[in-house]
């Protein structure tokens, strides 16, 4: 996998105030990369820097190896983006809006426009004025517009804002499809955790302009080991017993906690039951991103307190 977007020690100061502080991360092709943080954390500012709408105070952003500041035209060619709302010319029809974009980028044919329109399912309304469109339709037209030139990177700022549940699902599936089938690097930002968890492969958490953590959403898939909680009557004895069999366990408020491969689970149970311990429950603890997010941001808050 090649990294398509690279941020190196990016800092943004506005009137002496540091908005983005030393941000570095990379985004690979074919992945949906989430950009998560509370409101005002600097998500939109970072996205604006990535597309060259605002200046970078220090550091560098490259897209497919081209610096967005020094080699703007080359770099931005590989980018399709919607920054905040899908802004369109309301007095033009959907099709005319796409023509505006198609006209000034080389290699966008009429067929390509029709293809993009069909892709976002706007074929029957494309010749209506944009002012008659619903927010969801505008969002879709915006995506079609940013995909016209077959970019390598698609950047969407709060793509599900203002959409109904069906619309959100539609966008989500569509973005995953783009990443998987077309090998696009998709970058989305949001302050909605659950939303991001369903959509993204990796998530960068930022707070107060600083990168706190980059997490893989599907941890378990990568490691095979899961965390189990076992409710057993004599915890100390259980831990000692398991230690003899080289299985590490720790005490937990509701029992003992173990990191196991699935195939180890019957063994553990056998050991405990053969030693007359009472097992009331054995379950996988799946830490949701929300827990992790809160955990991480709280740690930070405590550290700074």
């Amino acid at each position: 996998m090649d990294s398509v977007v690279e941020l190196k020690q990016v800092t943004k100061k506005i009137r002496g105030k540091t908005i983005i502080d030393d941000l570095s991360f990379t985004v690979q092709e074919g992945e949906v990369f989430g950009f998560l943080g509370p409101n005002g954390a600097g998500k939109t500012t970072t996205i604006r820097m990535m597309v060259g709408l605002i200046n970078i105070t220090s550091g560098e952003i490259t897209i497919c190896g081209n610096s967005i500041t020094k080699d703007f035209e080359k770099a931005i060619k590989q980018v399709g983006a919607i920054v905040e709302n899908p802004e369109l010319y309301k007095f033009l029809t959907g099709y005319q809006n796409l023509q505006q974009a198609a006209r000034i980028i080389k290699g966008v044919t009429k067929e390509r426009i029709d293809e993009a329109v069909a892709l976002v399912g706007l074929s029957d309304r494309i010749h209506d004025k944009v002012k008659t469109y619903s927010l969801g339709m505008r969002q879709r037209l915006g995506i079609a517009q940013s995909l016209l030139h077959n970019p390598k990177v698609l950047i969407l700022d709060e793509p599900t804002n203002g959409l109904d549940p069906a619309g959100i699902r539609e966008i989500r599936d569509y973005l995953r499809k783009l990443a998987q089938e077309k090998k696009l690097a998709v970058i989305v930002s949001s302050h909605l955790l659950a939303e991001m968890e369903m959509m993204c492969d990796r998530i960068a958490i930022i707070q107060k302009g600083k990168l706190i953590n980059v997490q893989s959403v599907r941890n378990e898939v990568e490691t095979d080991k899961k965390t189990y909680l076992c409710d057993v009557n004599n915890r100390k004895q259980a831990i000692a017993l398991l230690a003899k069999h080289h299985i590490q366990a720790t005490e937990h408020t509701e029992g003992i906690q173990l990191l196991l491969e699935t195939t180890q689970v019957p063994d553990v149970l056998k050991i405990l039951l053969q030693n007359d311990l009472l097992v009331f429950e054995m379950k996988v603890i799946k830490k949701s991103l929300e827990d992790r997010f809160l955990e991480i941001t709280q740690e930070e808050a405590i550290m700074h307190a």
Binding site: V51, G52, L53, F72, E73, K74, I76, K77, V79, A81, V83, E84, N85, E87, L88, Y89, K90, A101, I104, I105, Q145
Partner: peptide
Amino acid sequence: SWGTIKILLIKPYK
């Protein structure tokens, strides 16, 4: 005021 400056300036033109 339309916000369309954002789509205009992220096209490959200085």
